[in-house]
Amino acid sequence: MYRQKLYASLKQLFKKNTMAEAAPSSSGAPSSSPGASNSIPDEETNGTYDCNICLDIAKDTVVTFCGHLFCWPCLHQWLSTRPDRQMCPVCKAGISKEKVIPIYGRGSTDNKDPREKLPPRPSAQRSEPENNSSFGNFNMGNLQFSFGIGAFPFTFFASNFNLGDARPGNPSAGTQQHQEERVLSQIFLFVAMFFAIWLIIA
């Protein structure tokens, strides 16, 4: 709906067409609305910014590195239809989710798109001017190292000695579920012990 309004105002701007007043009230049904009769001449004059897949004015616009324009929902569906062959629908150049550039026109931020369930457009890439990649890498390695050792005993204790138990109560003794859980917990304990011993030896 918003798009149609935008489209209508564009029409007013460029064509100074008084007919455009009818378009904002259109309900989206192309067959019956008064805007439908206008849409045919519009296509002739204004196809430059049409999505190459739905052939409509592109919404959530993205452009590929090879320069072809699409709606992001259309392009995403194309890419997910053939995950093994990711190519531009127009020129068959190799493309991928990471290799498309979103286009942000003025007024696109307050565009409340009803189809939020679709995957969001890939974000634009913006590289920082100074290069500090070596520092970043060092930080990363350090973090991973401390996590690997630090997390182990907590999870071990938490899972095997039921510290701070917030789980549902144990099933009453004698039931089959009780039996199964006992066996399971023994298996997990055994695996955990084995892992601990293996860590010490290694």
């Binding site: 062959r85 629908p89 068959k92």
Partner: peptide, 8 residues
Amino acid sequence: KDQWAAAM
């Protein structure tokens, strides 16, 4: 078949 592209 496999060489179909959505812009066709």
